[in-house]
Each structure stands twice: as C-alpha cells, then as structure tokens.
Amino acid sequence: MTTLTETTRAGAKPRALIVTIYGLYAREVGGWIGVAALIRMMAALDVDESSVRSAISRLKRRELLAPRRVGGAAGYELSDQAREILDEGDRRIFGRQRASLSDGWLLAVFTIPEAERQKRHVLRSRLSWLGFGTATPGVWIAPRNLFDETEDVLRRSQLADYVHVFHADYLAFGDVAEHVPKWWDLDGLRALYGEFLDTFGPVLTRWRRRRTPDDAAAFADYARGLTAWRRLPFLDPGLPPELLPRDWPGVRAAELFEELRERLAEPAHRYASAVIAPQR
C-alpha cells in the first residue's frame, strides 16, 4: 500500500507558494515576474523577503526558475521543465475526471537493475503522484483513465523503458472495494481532506459573509487555498464512487475548493495583475 508521508502533510512552504503564483499568473504574461512584484505578493502571504529569496534559490537549483532582466528590472522566468510541470498540474487540478468502474484498471509492472536503484525510488515516486496504489511489491494499480498522464510522465522522466503497463479488468475473486484500502492509503487521504476542510471551511464562511471586496485578501486566501489543494489531486487516484467509503470527505473538499475558486479567483487576479504590470 502506498502511504502518505509526514512530509506530504506539512504546511505550505514559501517555494510552494511561489510555484502557485507562477502557475496562476506568470504564464499569461510570458512566464516572467519581477523580484519586487514577487516579494510584494509574498508579503501579502506573510512571507518575508529573506524567505522569498531563499526559496527562489532552491527553485533555481532545481532548474524551475531562471534569472532574467526585463526593462532593467531583475526577475525570474519559468523554465521549459517548469511549464510542463505546471501544465500537467492544470490538467490534474482543474480538469481531472473521476473514474468509472466500467473503465477498468491499469497495471504497471517494472524491473530496475540494482545498479540503477535510484531510478527505482524515482519511479515509485512518480507512480504514487500519478495516483497508483500498490497491489503487490512489484505490481502497481490505477484507474484506466490515468493512462495518458502515466504515459506522458514516464516518457518525460525517461522511465518508460523500465515499465510495462497493462489494461486489465477485475474478474475474480472477492470484492474490489475490500481490496482498495489495501492498495491505497485511504486513511491518510481522508486525514488530508479533513485538514483541508478544517482549514478552509472557515475561510469560505468568511467570504460568504463578506460585503466589501478586498482584492489583496482574496489573493492571499486563494493562493493559500490552491497551494493546499493542488497536492490532493496528485494523491487521490480518482476512484469510482462505488469503491469509496460512505461520506468520503474528498467530495466535500472538492466542492469547497470550487466555491473558493469561484469567489476568489477573479479579485485575486486583479490584485496580482496590478502588482505585476508596473514591473514589465
């Protein structure tokens, strides 16, 4: 069974917030944001300048951001790798559909030589973030509708040569629903959804009651909410509803996020645009 680690449960770090900001606002203006604008937006998220610069350095080392000056202003632009990651994230966060039982399953079987065991760790990590669970130590399982994403990620990660992927149906024996908690860490995922509901339920309540618009506050709450939410579609395999426990919190959490998005995305965009535009 794939287990959700304590690292996954950690709160939003400055670099995760920066990735959210670039994902939401940088691509529509060519991928570049000035340092001064980024520091100002991060200040709205209660992150100080030294933490911003430290997080940028980490993103540079990971080759996700590259320095560039525009009109004399220092700033950072997205790398091609970062754009691919963000595009994949958009598909998972905003466009992913829940699987149907009639879709069937994917089985991923892999063998990696001991001399390349680091790739084994990377492959397992990629499969987990695609939504695969562990049927047995060498066989990973996911809903059939994840095939296109799986093929794309494994090819881009140069891991496709080590994996065989099969389309399968469950024929016998037993009830698939009984096996699902063995293949995926549903308890861990339930806890993460509960954490999201506990944190952002009160935020949504405040915005339902709010009468005076505040673009900066909308930006702060939306950026934090999206940063907390965007990991969840990468951990949730999108199983058919029939295989999930009753009162699955993922449904309520998704509805909460969508309402936050509907209420906050537009004013948050106005705030970010007003901060970014003078730098360009």
Score class of each variant (00 low, 15 high):
L159H: 12
L86S: 01
R210T: 07
E6N: 10
W248L: 05
I39N: 11
F234W: 14
R208W: 06
V203K: 09
Q118P: 01
A220L: 07
A254T: 13
P249N: 14
P278C: 03
R231Y: 02
A220H: 07
D87H: 14
L244Q: 02
L45V: 01
E195A: 15
A16F: 04
A55Q: 04
A108H: 05
E88K: 12
V165K: 12
D175A: 08
L260K: 01
R280N: 04
P233E: 10
A43C: 05
E28S: 13
V139Q: 11
V203S: 07
A191F: 09
L107W: 07
I21E: 01
P240G: 06
A168E: 03
D185C: 02
V163D: 10
A268S: 14
Q97G: 09
I39L: 12
R91D: 06
R96K: 15
T136P: 00
R91K: 10
L186Q: 01
A172V: 03
L197D: 08
P233N: 12
F110T: 03
S157I: 00
P278H: 10
V251E: 15
Y193C: 06
E28C: 00
A115K: 15
K60M: 01
A44H: 10
G238S: 13
V70W: 09
L123A: 10
A218I: 02
Y222L: 03
R117V: 02
G72D: 12
A115L: 09
R96G: 08
I85N: 01
R62W: 09
D221P: 00
T20V: 06
A216M: 15
M42L: 15
A172H: 11
A168R: 04
E266M: 00
W248H: 09
E114R: 10
V109S: 15
D236Y: 08
G238Q: 13
L101I: 02
A268W: 10
P241H: 14
E151A: 11
Q118S: 06
R15I: 02
S57P: 05
P245L: 03
R280A: 06
A44T: 06
D236M: 04
D80L: 05
D152R: 15
R92G: 01
D221Q: 07
E195P: 00
E258I: 00
F234A: 11
R209H: 13
L171V: 13
D169A: 12
I93A: 04
L264V: 03
W129G: 03
T205N: 14
F94K: 00
V275N: 12
G133A: 07
P137K: 08
R126L: 11
Y271A: 04
Y22C: 08
R155E: 14
Y193L: 10
F110A: 11
T199G: 09
V29F: 09
V165D: 08
T136E: 13
V70P: 00
H164L: 11
G188D: 09
Y271N: 06
Y25T: 00
I21K: 03
H179G: 12
P240S: 12
W32F: 05
R96Q: 14
V180I: 15
A254M: 13
D161L: 05
R83W: 05
F196W: 10
V275E: 14
Q118A: 09
G31K: 09
V176F: 09
L239A: 02
D187F: 05
P181G: 00
D198W: 07
R91S: 06
G95T: 04
D221H: 05
